[in-house]
Amino acid sequence: MGENTVSDGVPRIDDEAVQWSAPPEERAGRPLLVLLHGYGSHEGDLFALAPHLPKEFVVAAVRAPLTPPFPAPGWSWFPIEGLQARDARAITASATVLLDWLDRSVDPATPVGLLGFSQGAVIGLQALRLRPERIGFVVALAGFVADGTLPTDAALAARRPPVFWGRGSRDEVIPADRIAHSTEWLPGFVDLSGRVYPGLTHSVSQDELDDVVVFLRARLAESAR
């Protein structure tokens, strides 16, 4: 393993590419919401949502560590082609890289939530499984839960952190078997809420964003108790 890699040869998160909604001097004492983009995208994509999210959160959008095969643009969290396509080991490796960035960049006392779209949602859920004591909640949009079991799944089931899972009824990108697996798996391990949005494809609608904001405000209310 090289000094610039963390897990299974996956490069570290590029600190210089992270987009923050607040400078360092304005982050202390505030909860952090980390945005995780999808396949072939970049850190600026979901960061466009920041102005629409509760202002109490510091928002950080990170860039996935891998590049998809030419001619696909942008960045990716794990391969979707070849023998490694949607491989649980590859998903765990990139989730470990994300957690390494979190350990290096964020005060351990800072409450952290993850919001991911598509591949980013998969990574967010896997990071939650790996470190249920560190990740307070996950918003998973148009994603799924990786296959397999992890040694930390029992701790996750004991904590049952809040997860919002949103997806479109006409999303033809996420395979039906991934949806079926997630539908069966999530209720046993997390406090699950969410919605299937009629007519929505592999994207985010205004109705979904409105529901995400309600979910995030509920997390803020819980932390204020």
Rank of each mutant, 00 (worst) to 15 (best):
T5R: 08
I13P: 03
D15E: 15
E16A: 15
A22Q: 05
G29S: 03
E43Y: 09
D45H: 13
F47L: 07
P51M: 07
L53Q: 04
P54V: 07
A60E: 03
V62H: 09
P65T: 12
T67Y: 06
P71N: 11
A72N: 07
A72G: 02
W77E: 09
I80M: 15
E81Y: 08
R86S: 14
D87P: 05
A93H: 04
T96H: 09
W101I: 10
R104T: 01
V106P: 12
P108M: 12
P108K: 10
T110P: 01
F117V: 04
I123H: 00
L125I: 08
L128K: 04
R129L: 06
R129M: 10
P132R: 09
R134Y: 12
R134D: 11
F137I: 02
V138R: 10
L141G: 08
F144Q: 00
A146I: 06
L150Q: 14
A158D: 15
R159D: 00
G166M: 05
G168R: 08
S169K: 01
I179C: 00
A180I: 11
S182V: 12
P187W: 02
L192N: 06
S193T: 15
G194D: 07
V196M: 13
H202P: 06
H202K: 13
E208S: 04
E208R: 08
A221E: 14
S223P: 02
